[in-house]
C-alpha cells in the first residue's frame, strides 16, 4: 500500500479539479450555499475513503456525483421515500406527456422560436429547477449542467436509461410550464390574443 501522503496527493490531483461541478450539483440538491459546502466536503471525505475502489480510467466526475447524491439521500432518507411515491405518480409515458405539452404550441403565434427563454433571468430559472421534484431535478441538472449522457445519469442515479429519458423529458416539460407562466405574469411574453390559440393550432396541424 502506498504511503498515506502519496495516496492523498493522488486523490487531490484527480478529484479536486472537479470541485466546482460537484459544488454546483450539491447546491441544487441541498438548496443553500452552506448546506452545499457541507455536502461537497462530505462527498470528498467519503470519496477519499473509497478512493481504492475507484476504477481508474472511468470518469471521476460521474463517480463523485454518485457519492454526492448518496450522501445527500442518506441525510434525507425520509424525504426520499416520500419523493419516490410522488415520482411513481408523476412518471408517465413520455408519448402521453408530449401530447399534452403545449408551451411551444401555446406560444408559437407570438414567439415561434422561443426568444423569450433567453430573457428570463437565471435566478428565476434556478428557482424553477429547485422546485422540481428531486428525481426530476437531478436528472435535468446532470443532463444540462454537466452534459452527462443518459447512460451516465443512469449509473449515477441507479436507474435504467429508459427511466432517465422519461425523467429528463418530464423535467423539461414541467420547467417549461412553470417558466412560461412566469414569462406571461411578468410581461416578458405578451398574452395570447383572444381565440388565437385555436386558429393557430389548426393552421399548424395542416
Amino acid at each position: 500500500m502506498p504511503d498515506e501522503s502519496q495516496r492523498r496527493s493522488d486523490f487531490s490531483e484527480e478529484a479536486l479539479p472537479e470541485m466546482d461541478a460537484i459544488y454546483r450539483f450539491a447546491l441544487r440538491l441541498a438548496g443553500s450555499p452552506d448546506a452545499a459546502e457541507d455536502l461537497t466536503q462530505e462527498t470528498y471525505l467519503r470519496a477519499y475513503r473509497s478512493w481504492d475502489s475507484f476504477t481508474r480510467g472511468t470518469r471521476i466526475r460521474s463517480w463523485l456525483f454518485t457519492i454526492c447524491r448518496n450522501v445527500h439521500l442518506r441525510k434525507f432518507d425520509r424525504a426520499r421515500r416520500h419523493d419516490e411515491i410522488l415520482v411513481e405518480v408523476a412518471e408517465e409515458d413520455p408519448r402521453q406527456i408530449s401530447r399534452e405539452a403545449g408551451v411551444f404550441m401555446a406560444t408559437r403565434d407570438r414567439d415561434p422560436e422561443g426568444a423569450f427563454w433567453d430573457q428570463i433571468v437565471d435566478a428565476q430559472i434556478l428557482e424553477a429547477i429547485d422546485k422540481l421534484p428531486p428525481h426530476f431535478r437531478e436528472a435535468v441538472v446532470l443532463c444540462d449542467l454537466e452534459d452527462l449522457s443518459y447512460e451516465e445519469i443512469g449509473q449515477v442515479v441507479g436507474i435504467p436509461v429508459g427511466t432517465v429519458k422519461s425523467r429528463v423529458f418530464r423535467a423539461r416539460r414541467i420547467l417549461q410550464e412553470s417558466l412560461h407562466a412566469y414569462a406571461v405574469e411578468t410581461g416578458i411574453l405578451p398574452l395570447a390574443r383572444e381565440g388565437a390559440g385555436r386558429t393557430t393550432r389548426q393552421a399548424g396541424d395542416r
Binding site: F104, R108, E113, G114, D118, D122, I125
Partner: peptide, 16 residues
C-alpha cells in the same frame, strides 16, 4: 429552435 433556446437558457442558468 424553440427547444434549443430553452435548453440553452437552462444550461446557462445551471452553470452558475
Amino acid at each position: 429552435r424553440f427547444e434549443e433556446a430553452f435548453r440553452a437558457a437552462v444550461k446557462d442558468a445551471a452553470s452558475r
